[in-house]
Amino acid sequence: MKPPLKPTLTAPGTLAAKAVAKRPGFPVRLELDAGTPSATKKIAGRAHPERATGTFYQKIPARTALPSGVGLDSRAVRARMVQKLAAQGISDAQVLAAMGHVERHRFVDTALVNQAYEDTSLPIGLGQTISKPNVVARMLELLRQGAGSPAGKLGRVLEIGTGCGYQAAVLAELATEVYSIERLRGLHDKARENLRAFRLANVHLLFGDGMVGYAKGAPYAAIIAAAGGESIPAAWVEQLAVGGRLVAPMHIAGSAQALVVLDKTAQGVTQTVLEAVHFVPLKSGTS
């Protein structure tokens, strides 16, 4: 097994005027989009050999219109999806609002657009899938029910397994800051492209080994994983803040998986096993 590759951080949004929480220092290269009415320029920062580097994309002065995709006006379809989620037991108003706001069809292949708002997982390439809406909403609701969750937004969140970027976009509605790590270069690039036009200043995409987390951004108020292993990696527990909550699938018997909720308190860690789920396997390294 090759050694984990040091995460490379990129961000699909603009630089925030003021950070919502203390974040790790790292040099960045700021690129204005070429071909805009305003002048363009590039400001390069020298990378520190021990720090992650990244690119923040910013358009001045106006925001780029979201891609038209297949011309689908999905507002009514999203509203019906949210109604179904509520009927299935999702009751967190902020989660339902976020699910209703993010256009899921922009994160799936054109051939699958008509299935984008069905309660089903869909392939996104490289043997991976976008989780069905009910599972995404359920896991996000569990995160927000954690003892350390504020009445408003979650604090800094670590997502293991960016995939196509859909869950990161929903998390951006619910958290002050999102670090999302993906081990497959093809999916990392796809998520970066999918999220670029949304200009999510609080989302940072990383390419690296999700099993080791991202220590430079720790501690995290919440951690969520989109792949299941034999156990919860120790690095995730270490990077979770006291009072924080972790939600992830985990093997409980043979090939069976279940959702696991882990709460970290000053007295220790408690683990709760919930309903059965089916996620792709958690793997180490990058590809």
Rank of each mutant, 00 (worst) to 15 (best):
K2R: 10
T8V: 14
A11R: 15
T14S: 14
A16M: 15
A21K: 11
K22R: 12
R23C: 11
R23N: 13
G25A: 11
P27Y: 06
V28W: 14
E31I: 13
P37I: 12
A39S: 14
A39D: 12
A44D: 12
G45C: 07
A47W: 05
H48P: 00
P49A: 11
P49K: 11
P49W: 09
A62M: 11
L66V: 09
S68I: 10
G69Q: 12
G69D: 12
A76E: 14
V77A: 15
R80I: 05
M81E: 15
V82L: 04
L85F: 04
A86H: 14
D92T: 02
V95N: 03
A97P: 03
R104T: 05
F107D: 04
D109T: 08
A111K: 15
A111E: 15
V113Q: 09
A116G: 06
A116Y: 03
E118M: 08
L126T: 05
G127Q: 09
K132W: 04
P133W: 03
A137G: 06
E141W: 02
L142E: 08
L143M: 07
R144S: 03
Q145S: 10
Q145T: 02
G146Y: 09
G148V: 03
S149W: 04
S149F: 01
S149C: 13
G152H: 03
L154Q: 02
L154Y: 02
V157D: 06
I160T: 01
I160G: 00
G161V: 01
C164L: 05
C164D: 08
G165Y: 04
G165Q: 02
Q167H: 01
Q167I: 03
A169V: 02
A169F: 04
A175Q: 10
E177Y: 01
R183T: 11
L184C: 05
R185P: 01
D189Q: 14
K190M: 13
A197V: 09
A197R: 13
L200T: 06
H204D: 10
L205E: 02
G208T: 02
M211D: 03
V212E: 13
V212M: 12
G213V: 09
P219L: 04
A221M: 01
A222T: 07
A225G: 07
A227F: 01
E230Q: 14
V242Q: 04
G243C: 08
P249F: 00
P249K: 07
P249Y: 03
M250K: 15
A256E: 14
L259N: 01
L259H: 02
K264D: 07
Q267H: 13
Q267F: 09
Q271G: 06
H278N: 13
L282D: 03
K283N: 00
T286K: 04
T286V: 15
T286N: 05
S287D: 13
